[in-house]
Design a binder for these strands. Structure first.
Lengths: 171, 171
DNA sequence: ATCATTGCAAAAGATTTGCAAGGTC
DNA sequence: GACCTTGCAAATCTTTTGCAATGAT
């Protein structure tokens, strides 16, 4: 699940690490090795990911000797929740599993989801925000956010005969 | 999770029961008591629901003598999947659990989700469809559908001091 | 009679939690 | 040293599945 075109990034004063540090301190929490590693890893590249990907990439595997991993499954989940609370990550559901993406310093956007290759493509629309707010106003509804996912088949997949689901690639 | 205003319904030739019967026959499946009971129950009132609600309403409880229920948990799930396949129900995810709503004979719409009382409010927007298709066209994306959920707080909850989550009410 | 369906129990997948051992301030 | 965190194991929650008994055609 990579992004396939970039949206302009937003200027921010602090790095994700610094921002998280700040959040942790305000909560009387500690910035541990594990949390640092996760933040560094997550913000080293911009894409969509789920807990399993992090676990695969950062967890010690007993079955192999590639014990380069260093964060346990519960800590991955615990830290992801903290990162969402801290406003660094945004979480949403896709096919019953949680998917995360960068939020801090990244503009608001929505997604096109290709059901063939399982990739997510981003787009921004001012009109959508206006429409959302208009609908809400009509119903006297206080908006805090929204989630729009357009599903279908991307150009690449529509051209290709067949293509594996990314989900499968990753396991 | 009730609807709070109605959308015009669409004219259809067959009742949900008949439509499902047709679907089952085309698949060499049988229209059993359990399936009939579920369809009758589900289409007796228009609202959003999840598997647990059906199970609570239709499953035999061993701990009480109110054994008015008649459909087991696995059958509820199996039938819900069939109803989605048959086009009678539409399924989406909310807070990690599957939510269903009537699809057959019911117009396409989107939702406002109140995070206080957990209710879903429906709305229709032609503009949204146009916007969706415009975005897709721009990215050469073949749209098959979309899901928009606007979250926030409904008027009622914004006025009230405090309100229980419906989820809790139902358990 | 044949073959689908049901209910039970158990499995599976994702995420969370209790708790003792270890790390951070 | 006080207290937060981690990792492990186990629990939870939602949904699915194997299988023997039951039901529909």
């Amino acid at each position: 699940m990579n992004q396939d075109f970039s949206l302009g990034s937003v200027e921010v004063a602090l790095t994700p690490q610094e921002r998280f540090e700040e959040f942790l301190q305000s909560r009387g929490k500690r910035n541990t090795q594990e949390r640092k590693l996760l933040v560094t890893h997550i913000f080293s590249h911009h894409d969509h990911f789920d807990a399993n990907q992090l676990i695969d990439e950062l967890t010690v595997r007993k079955d192999t000797d590639k014990a380069f991993g260093r964060v346990s499954r519960p800590t991955v989940y615990r830290t992801l929740n903290e990162l969402v609370e801290a406003g660094l990550l945004r979480k949403f559901e896709l096919d019953g599993r949680a998917v995360y993406e960068h939020d801090y310093g990244y503009p608001e956007h929505d997604h096109l989801h290709c059901t063939k290759c399982n990739r997510l493509f981003e787009f921004q629309s001012e009109e959508l925000l206006a429409l959302r707010d208009a609908v809400a106003r009509e119903q006297r509804f206080r908006v805090t956010g929204h989630r729009l996912i357009i599903s279908g088949v991307c150009d690449e997949c529509a051209s290709a005969k067949r293509r594996m689901k990314r989900k499968v690639d990753l396991i």
